[in-house]
Design a binder for these strands. Structure first.
Lengths: 203, 203
DNA sequence: TGACTAATATGACAATCGTCATATTTCAGG
DNA sequence: CCTGAAATATGACGATTGTCATATTAGTCA
């Protein structure tokens, strides 16, 4: 059995990263926040903090993509978008606008803590590749859902990028304003755009 | 004369923040990166790092809003959008996709470095208020430009939020992918949305 | 039960952080 | 030139960071 301690550390790291970014999340914070033994860090994550962050990014990616894919196939593009936005709004309001997206945090922050500049660069590139993969994953789910409803491939790709990027930006802005108003506005405009794009192919 | 050292520190802090976030930007990095005297930090910024970050946010906000406002009034909404996107693309490509938006970094990161949790909360809230003010400033420039071309107030507000949020998110995603492709896609869709919204009022 | 590995506990290490006290330099105004 | 304030230089402080070495416990299979 893979230790539950490991999973708790990963989930806790993702949560802390979503609240304060990569460098505001210390290993001591993770064990404090998750009530896990500090002595097990190097045992479960022999590559140290960069490994924990990397696994937290992948974890956060799946945590979003799995329900997103289900909502897209069950309720269509518009319904999937609504579920996507609703999950972010729930997270924002449940935490008093303290928690955002840990993947965006990895994309924005530079990981510090390597000894040489060479290792620092490769570690940073690895984390960025993982974040990029998560974003690409979310976009592809949106992309295939749009294709399924008849959109042209290039248009579907552009719209998928717009949806993911705008919601990522909006979530961060909502944290700054401590209000979900921006999320309401963006949701409405995205629904309008998607509905118009889908209506054009349906006629 | 207000010291040029002070301005260089603020600009350098904004630059480093846009590359690695708030907590990856140390005061020693700022003086190293800007070749400014380390002994002058507490002289020019008696409130320490939080003051430097705060001034860097305001600086970065004006650095964007001033040319944005000019482009909006000279070239209209579509032209202003293109100038807005182009300036971000230039920044991304000129730095090898290392530099992003320092205001987004403040919105994503939690500032650590205060002694008490009480001071930490108020300092964090202050920085978030500044970041929120910058975003609101950019949105309002877009908002008034849309009003000037005949859009209804609520629609103009929603579109302004969509534009700022989606571009902020896209810039971060472009850093992760080390490619400006997402920026191209988002720009095209935003232009389509704005053109359609403006055409409806023009008829 | 005995043995062996996984898991956790504990303390220490060097490095870096923001900040501050103190000393020195720079330089405009009398 | 003199003076006083602004600006810079320098070193140190305590606190925190990631990491690791060592020791102890837990748990599982023979």
């Amino acid at each position: 059995m893979t230790s539950s301690t490991r999973d708790k550390m990963i989930a806790g790291a993702a949560d802390l990263m979503s609240r304060g970014g990569v460098n505001a999340t210390s290993m001591r914070d993770v064990v404090r926040h998750t009530a896990t033994p500090r002595g097990s860090i190097s045992h479960h994550f022999p590559d140290g903090k960069r490994q924990l962050i990397a696994e937290a990014v992948v974890f956060a990616g799946k945590q979003v993509s799995i329900p997103l894919e289900k909502a897209m196939s069950e309720r269509g593009v518009i319904g999937g978008l609504r579920a996507f936005v609703a999950s972010w709004r729930r997270r924002l309001e449940a935490t008093g606008f303290e928690a955002g997206c840990p993947v965006l945090a990895v994309a924005v922050d530079r990981y510090v803590g390597e000894v040489s500049d060479k290792d620092d660069d490769t570690a940073q590139r690895h984390l960025l590749d993982l974040a990029d993969g998560v974003f690409a994953d979310w976009q592809q789910i949106m992309h295939t859902a749009l294709l399924r409803e008849g959109l042209a491939a290039e248009r579907a790709e552009r719209l998928a990028t717009l949806v993911v990027a705008s919601i990522e930006g909006t979530v961060a802005m909502c944290r700054a304003s401590r209000s979900a108003a921006a999320l309401d506005q963006v949701q409405e405009e995205l629904e309008t755009v998607l509905a118009a794009a889908l209506a054009r192919t349906a006629k």
